[in-house]
Amino acid sequence: MPDCLFCAIVAGSVPAFKVVDSPDGVGFLDIRPVFKGHVLVVPRPHVPELSALEPDLLPGFFALVQRVAAAVPEATGARGTFVAMNNIVSQSVPHLHAHVVPRTKGDGLRGFFWPRHKYGSEEEAASYASRIAGVLG
């Protein structure tokens, strides 16, 4: 899809802090993370929402989301993750993506109010991406 930011990231024509690049999808840091280490996982083909994802792609895509959800706490020191997906409403980019957000007890996240935290620098973002990618292998 020529005007899709996530398709451009998948294709490599737009830079991103990728943590995984596999046949099942691509994971990269959210540039406006809820907490540092917040990863977006997208399928390789342009798919606007979950209901449009081909059934044969579901197992691989969700296995990738599961792998990222396991890697994020180990890489960031978080206690767990919050995994979420919007369909059409609240999607800032109309390409299916799963949010994998690191969580710790008392982190202040309440319901669906997601305060955003910026990375202090590109080096800090690259460090988070590298640590998560390292856990993913």
Rank of each mutant, 00 (worst) to 15 (best):
P2G: 10
P2H: 06
P2R: 01
P2V: 00
P2Q: 05
P2K: 01
D3P: 03
D3S: 11
D3R: 05
C4A: 03
C4F: 02
C4M: 05
L5G: 10
L5R: 12
L5P: 00
L5K: 08
L5C: 05
L5F: 08
F6Y: 06
F6W: 12
F6A: 12
C7H: 09
C7S: 14
C7M: 05
C7V: 09
A8D: 11
A8I: 04
A8N: 13
I9A: 02
I9D: 02
V10H: 09
V10Q: 06
V10G: 11
V10P: 07
A11E: 15
A11K: 13
A11P: 07
A11W: 00
A11G: 05
A11M: 01
G12K: 08
G12P: 11
G12I: 14
G12V: 10
G12D: 12
S13M: 05
S13A: 10
S13H: 09
S13F: 06
S13K: 13
S13Y: 10
V14T: 15
V14R: 14
P15Y: 11
P15M: 13
P15D: 14
A16I: 08
A16D: 05
A16S: 15
A16N: 07
F17R: 14
F17T: 02
F17V: 04
F17D: 14
K18N: 11
K18I: 05
K18F: 03
V19A: 06
V19W: 12
V19N: 07
V19L: 08
V19F: 10
V20I: 15
V20L: 11
V20T: 15
D21Y: 08
D21A: 11
S22P: 04
S22Y: 06
S22V: 12
P23Q: 02
P23S: 06
D24P: 02
D24H: 13
G25E: 09
G25M: 08
V26G: 00
V26H: 01
V26C: 07
G27P: 07
G27W: 06
G27K: 11
G27H: 08
G27L: 10
G27S: 09
F28K: 01
F28Q: 03
L29D: 00
L29K: 10
L29T: 09
L29H: 02
D30T: 12
D30W: 04
D30I: 13
I31E: 01
I31K: 13
I31R: 15
I31S: 14
I31L: 15
R32T: 11
R32P: 04
P33I: 06
P33R: 08
P33K: 03
V34H: 03
V34W: 04
F35E: 08
F35A: 14
F35M: 08
F35N: 13
F35K: 15
F35I: 01
K36V: 00
K36L: 10
K36G: 03
K36I: 01
G37N: 07
G37R: 03
G37S: 12
G37D: 07
G37P: 09
H38N: 10
H38D: 03
H38F: 10
H38V: 02
V39G: 04
V39L: 02
L40E: 09
L40K: 07
L40D: 06
L40W: 00
L40V: 11
L40H: 03
V41F: 00
V41H: 06
V41R: 02
V42K: 02
V42H: 00
V42M: 04
P43F: 01
P43V: 03
P43M: 07
P43W: 05
P43R: 00
